[in-house]
């Protein structure tokens, strides 16, 4: 039972990403490499952040504003890093395109670009889930479980897995939104990503209140589904556009 519970928690957090990985990413080695490097980028950002905040830890358990500051600084740092990631990707895309020209293969299709963005986002999301949820899951394989005082209805592992799932969704699809926003120069898409990220981070502060997770987690899911819907609409639009562009030329 305990091993089943542990695996279950892990799958709650990472199941959707796992199926995305198997169905989309694992077929193309380049996407796997993208995913790995984006995971590494996220890990490095986390290490840098924890290095910055290390002198101030542990924070007082009942004061809220240092946590808010921590979340804001982390989100700003990671969004800056996302922009950097985009810059690197842009150069890579140029190199790939020129390479495709050299071997007289077609350039990157729109779907390829979207898939690269998806793999990059998935890397961020998976890294988030792994480090914030999965790495604390070891005790869940043992015979006991663990409750935190502020959210006493649900086991800690389950609630952290559920929150991690929301963040995986947000990270994965906001990367697609951000890349498209940067590529098209669409200001709304460029701004909405940090806003969502920041809002999601802030929503976890609701969990500070006693039993706040009852409100905070559903709100987080609203945000996650908003991201998902926005990303879906945007990608759909882009696909329609590109089909309309390419069909007259045929």
């Amino acid at each position: 039972m305990t091993i089943a519970a542990g695996i279950g928690y892990a799958l709650v957090a990472l199941g959707p990403s796992l199926s995305l990985f198997v169905s989309v990413v694992s077929k193309k080695p380049f996407l796997i490499l993208t995913l790995l490097s984006s995971t590494l980028v996220w890990l490095v950002s986390l290490i840098v952040l924890s290095g910055l905040w290390r002198p101030f830890l542990p924070l007082k358990a009942n004061v809220r504003w240092p946590y808010a500051l921590l979340v804001i600084s982390s989100v700003c740092f990671q969004e800056a890093l996302r922009f950097l990631f985009w810059k690197v990707y842009k150069r890579l895309e140029d190199v790939l395109d020129s390479f495709a020209d050299r071997i007289s293969r077609p350039r990157l299709f729109l779907t390829d670009k979207l898939q690269i963005a998806l793999a990059g986002g998935l890397g961020h999301g998976v890294a988030h889930a792994v480090f914030f949820c999965l790495s604390l899951l070891t005790p869940a394989f043992g015979p006991a479980t663990f409750y935190v005082d502020r959210c006493s209805k649900v086991p800690f592992f389950l609630i952290s897995a559920i929150i991690a799932l929301a963040f995986v969704t947000i990270h994965t699809f906001s990367m697609v939104i951000a890349f498209e926003g940067y590529a098209k120069g669409n200001k709304v898409d460029q701004v909405i990503v940090p806003v969502i990220h920041l809002a999601a981070g802030m929503l976890t502060l609701v969990n500070f209140a006693s039993e706040g997770c009852v409100i905070g987690v559903p709100l987080l899911y609203v945000l996650a589904s908003l991201t998902l819907v926005h990303c879906g609409k945007m990608v759909w639009q882009r696909l329609i556009e590109s089909r309309n562009q390419s069909s007259p030329s045929r």
């Binding site: 986390l46 952040l49 924890s50 290095g51 790495s135 976890t204």
Partner: peptide, 19 residues
Amino acid sequence: TRLLMEPFVVGMTTNLMMF
């Protein structure tokens, strides 16, 4: 990871804070 990240991450997650 052992020296820097773990106290940070554990401190965050046990308060159910993520970003």
